[in-house]
């Protein structure tokens, strides 16, 4: 459903801006094949169940970690903590997304986010899938995939 894609984009952009002072745009830059790509996923379980999957290049995670920590991107802890930063970002995003989609009445438990290195650049499928959003952040292409178990949700109150 078109609302899912829009909600993913809007929430991601809002949280990234408020938390890390990083800004998105819709321009779909070419995904870099010169960088390592990461996949971070977090599952939500409650009356509805699903998984949020995030694909980004390592460069994005370093920028995120540096901004969250308020340090220079070349600082040593940025490399060490870049995966932790993106896991925590996904934890926060998923919590907000669940509220946006399903409201704040029911309890949803989130899994511990998992991050892994991908063997190659992921396939970008946003153009043909309403549950997928693609954005650019500081020239880095990223992709958010919402995998729903059962019926595709629409945002709460929609």
């Amino acid at each position: 459903m078109p609302q899912t894609k829009t909600t993913l984009k809007e929430l991601f952009s809002e949280i990234l801006a408020n938390l890390a002072f990083m800004f998105t745009d819709d321009e779909e830059s070419e995904p870099s094949d010169q960088d390592v790509w990461l996949e971070t996923s977090v599952r939500y379980l409650g009356p509805n169940r699903g998984t949020l999957v995030f694909h980004c290049p390592r460069r994005f995670t370093r920028g995120l970690a540096a901004n969250l920590l308020g340090v220079d991107p070349e600082a040593p802890q940025v490399n060490d903590q870049s995966e932790d930063a993106v896991r925590e970002f996904m934890n926060i995003l998923c919590g907000q997304l669940v509220t946006q989609f399903f409201g704040s009445q029911d309890i949803y438990n989130l899994s511990i986010p998992q991050c892994r290195v991908l063997p190659e650049v992921p396939e970008f499928i946003a153009a043909r899938d309403p549950n997928v959003a693609s954005l650019s952040v500081d020239g880095s292409r990223i992709q958010l995939v919402h995998l729903v178990e059962g019926e595709t949700p629409s945002p709460a109150g929609a």
């Binding site: 926060i92 919590g95 309890i107 989130l110």
Partner: peptide, 12 residues
């Protein structure tokens, strides 16, 4: 300090 926003959870 948590990501969760459920009213039930907060009451719990």
């Amino acid at each position: 300090v948590s990501t969760e926003g459920s009213r039930q959870r907060i009451a719990e």
